[in-house]
Design a protein around this nucleic acid. Structure first.
Length: 274
DNA sequence: CGGCAGGCGGTTA
DNA sequence: TAACCGCCTGCC
């Protein structure tokens, strides 16, 4: 399927630290797993900034719904307008947005985001990607073959609640294995999906991970995760040093779009740091 | 080898 | 409630 898009860049979207279930291909396309779906996304960019053009979605099955991918890729949100609003509110935003002008907040499944960001703590992106893939292979269900490779979904809370830390050892999650099992047990006992009021009380979930789950898994675009990179950026660009002052600044200045502003800041500091 | 990577929980004062 | 520290692991 082909979709006309703007304010959209594959590298910006997948390499801004919000999602760990993708593989960058040599030709610039990304093979992505979302829930139980697999697709390769490629772009024909039509502007110099590479933020607009024709998105091509190649899926494993021809009965795939375009609607799913439109929603997952957050195509119904007007990022052009949001960028204008943020740039108007803040000079730093005006400067950093062009670096990641094609960012979109993916609408990930809440459980998938919970598992992903529990694993992400004190960890680096390549290892997080590997951990999630290995974990899915060990305990997740097969979601089919694509380009000759078998893919697995993130294990359900039920599947994770049943295992011991020893059984998870091959995935090399370290001390995060316990958090994952305890959190799975907690969600199983509630008998429903993760909701916002659960997040902070989950085992292994502190302020940073909670904000990531809210932002990336529950659509809370006003959430503002503060990690070491955001700390560095806000110290460098705003002269703010304390966490709670960063939080207050984000609430006051970025407001309902704080999570999106966070992504622009994050992408900027990572790009400039290279 | 020590230091560290997109933090957290537990313990202290 | 703030500061400190150990922690699995892999990589430098």
């Amino acid at each position: 399927m082909k979709i006309d898009v703007r304010d959209f860049n594959l590298k910006h979207i997948f390499e801004c630290g919000q999602c760990f279930r993708w593989n960058a291909n040599l030709n610039g396309s990304y093979t992505v797993v979302a829930g139980n779906r697999i697709a390769t996304l490629s772009m024909e960019y039509t502007n110099a900034e590479k933020t607009a053009g024709i998105l091509n979605i190649d899926t494993a099955s021809c009965r795939e719904s375009e609607e799913f991918w439109r929603n997952y890729l957050d195509l119904y949100r007007d990022y052009g307008k949001i960028k204008e609003v943020l740039a108007e509110r803040d000079d730093v935003m005006r400067r950093v947005i062009p670096f990641g002008g094609g960012i979109r907040i993916l609408k990930q499944d809440s459980w998938e985001a919970t598992v992903s960001f529990l694993i992400s703590q004190n960890n680096n992106i390549p290892r997080i990607n590997n951990n999630i893939r290995d974990l899915s292979k060990l305990l997740g269900e097969s979601i089919g073959f694509y380009a000759g490779e078998e893919y697995f979904g993130i294990p359900s809370p039920e599947a994770l609640a049943k295992v011991t830390e020893e059984e998870l050892a091959p995935v090399r999650l370290g001390y995060r294995a316990k958090y994952l099992i305890e959190t799975a047990k907690c969600i199983v006992s509630k008998g429903r999906q993760v909701i916002e009021s659960d997040v902070k009380s989950l085992c292994g979930v502190g302020p940073k991970v909670a904000n990531c789950i809210n932002l990336f898994g529950l659509g809370k675009v006003e959430s503002f995760p503060i990690d070491v990179w955001i700390k560095k950026t806000m110290t460098d660009l705003y002269g703010i040093k304390k966490d709670d002052e960063m939080k207050a600044y984000a609430e006051k200045t970025f407001g309902e779009y704080a999570g999106i502003a966070q992504q622009y800041l994050f992408y900027y500091v990572r790009e400039v740091g290279k």
